[in-house]
Design a binder for these strands. Structure first.
Lengths: 334, 334
DNA sequence: TTGTATGCGTTATCAC
DNA sequence: GTGATAACGCATACAA
């Protein structure tokens, strides 16, 4: 790699002159600036990022800690983060906690050594279940800003970007009751223990209460794949009064449609199916599923923007941004 | 952040003694080593990664350039890469090319300034279509090792990890012909222009030729979602002799099942459906789809391991690893 | 066993 | 307008 020193030697001038010339300092003559830039271009000189970082004590890098990236929600959020980071001249270092506390803690610790200027994270399932927060507080105490999205820790004060989990499910449930005239709505949940799962379930329960209806909740408890199908299948078979299914994740809604068809339920005439989802979800279901569309990409973009803002201006006050979801009804063309 | 200098001052010893003590140098007395480590622990000292990097001229970081991360194949590969990198004490900086040449080129350039020790990449769609390779060669010329996986550039010599695209589709097609006695197999392709798409199609064509059968190929050409459904639907309707569908991506197989059911085709009795897929693919289809299972996670792990090996030992000779796929037949329990 | 000096590549301050 | 020097935090060759 070409260095300032090499350029200086070749041009028979000093290192500092070269540096200034490349940075368009006013103290440098037009002539030398052109000479320097010409040679730099020719030798494909690029300032060593590491040295710059040491000098400025800024890494221009964001640590992104995700529970998993095979869940399309987080993949889409990551996409939004990456895009925004790149546009603002930041790199991202990605760590996956695999939903474990220990990996999350380790990742935070390892990157808290100058590698990154701040963190964007969604809390691991295990950390939420066990209510582990000390490792995150430690990072914040060391003056590294942390932004949480989606799965957040209420007790920690920091920038947050969340989805309107309670409200979106409340609204969707109300829609099923009032517009589609459903009375026996089944909630299918496999994320009961997450903060977002709890909020969604609460939204559902509240909507039913407000309409004097009885909740039906089917918890799936991380069963293996075939069990998800069998559990839903058997429940639907045993409860033929169910006239709507509300899935609060992005998988079980599609499974529910498949099982209902197997039981010859007429969708959407006799049974409405509504789930959480993203851009490609509808394509995989037939008939089309209606979805509560989380703007995952936008969540990523806004999270990243917010963190970068707080990095530039650390007197910024902390805020919690709520991203509303859209209820996307299926266009049942096919 | 605590520094060596601060520790030294507090202990009234020199910086180098502190440094050596922390690195378990034999020249340091048991006594001071304990004193130093004790204080370091107490003050939560962590060596500044940036400074270490500048000193050693190694970033212990790998640049990972992916076309997209919302495609579950790449998400799964990323998972494998992250796991292996972490286990080997490497960080990963992730960039997404969004399938564009310009972003891919920019990412390579930006990270080729000391930020990373090497690259793992799958070539962007646009780069493959336009046969752009100069930007990658430039990186390799600058002595940064590049490992390509899945989508590779044949003309470039470097470490590669690829899937047996030709052979797996040849075998799957042969299975449909010989075991399931199918004679009119439709190939559905929406990745015709990628190196992997071409290879898969060739495997299909060769298997048919070897059995004196005629190919039927339905190219989807990145149509929008509804068009994918309609195109497949209409094709199946107009060609009722089709008795098997082979999808060479991870989406259209599921769509094909849905459309075939709508046309009242009996799956798997009258129509076999086979697609590419990963762990969660089967759950979303009913009846279950048979899949050519790409070991995406393993591809990531091996890619990362191979690159790290070449980083440690740059006299390593280059190799191309082929990861075989599994043909996973559906267990049609539900 | 400990300390001093040097340098990684860059930027900034100051002197010429 | 240019150059010498110091400094970021760390590691190490060398001196004591």
């Amino acid at each position: 790699m070409t260095t300032l020193k090499e350029l200086a030697k070749l041009l028979n001038i000093s290192v500092s002159t070269v540096s200034k010339a490349l940075n368009d300092s006013h103290e440098i003559s037009e002539n030398t600036r052109i000479r320097v830039k010409g040679l730099a271009e020719k030798l494909n000189y690029k300032p060593n990022r590491i040295a710059q970082q040491l000098k400025t004590n800024k890494s221009k890098t964001i640590g992104v800690i995700l529970p998993t990236v095979t869940n399309p929600f987080f993949a889409e959020v990551l996409h939004g983060i990456e895009k925004t980071a790149t546009n603002n001249d930041y790199d991202i270092i990605v760590c996956l906690s695999n939903e474990t506390f220990i990996k999350e803690k380790r990742s935070l610790e390892l990157l808290s050594n100058g590698s990154v200027d701040g963190f964007i994270m969604a809390v691991a399932r295990e950390s939420q279940v066990k209510n582990e927060t000390a490792h995150i507080l430690e990072v914040i105490d060391s003056k590294l800003p942390v932004l949480m999205f989606d799965r957040v820790v209420n007790e920690i004060t920091c920038n947050k970007v969340i989805v309107d989990d309670f409200q979106s499910v409340y609204d969707a449930t109300t829609y099923l009751i009032e517009t589609e005239k459903r009375k026996h709505i089944l909630l299918v949940s496999n994320i009961e223990e997450l903060s977002v799962g709890k909020l969604r379930t609460e939204g559902y329960v509240k909507a039913l209460e407000d309409h004097k209806l009885k909740p039906h909740i089917l918890k799936l408890d991380h069963a293996v794949d075939t069990d998800i199908e069998k559990t839903i299948h058997d429940y639907l078979k045993a409860n033929d009064t169910i006239d709507a299914i509300l899935s609060i994740d992005h998988i079980t809604g599609i499974v529910a449609i498949n099982m209902a068809k197997k039981l010859n339920r007429n969708i959407p005439k006799d049974l409405s199916v509504l789930g959480f989802g993203f851009d490609h979800t509808p394509l995989l279901a037939s008939p089309k599923i209606s979805i509560i569309h989380q703007k995952a990409h936008e969540i990523g973009e806004i999270s990243c923007k917010l963190l970068i803002d707080s990095l530039k201006n650390d007197t910024n006050k902390l805020q919690t941004v709520v991203i509303p979801s859209n209820l996307k009804l299926s266009e049942s063309t096919m």
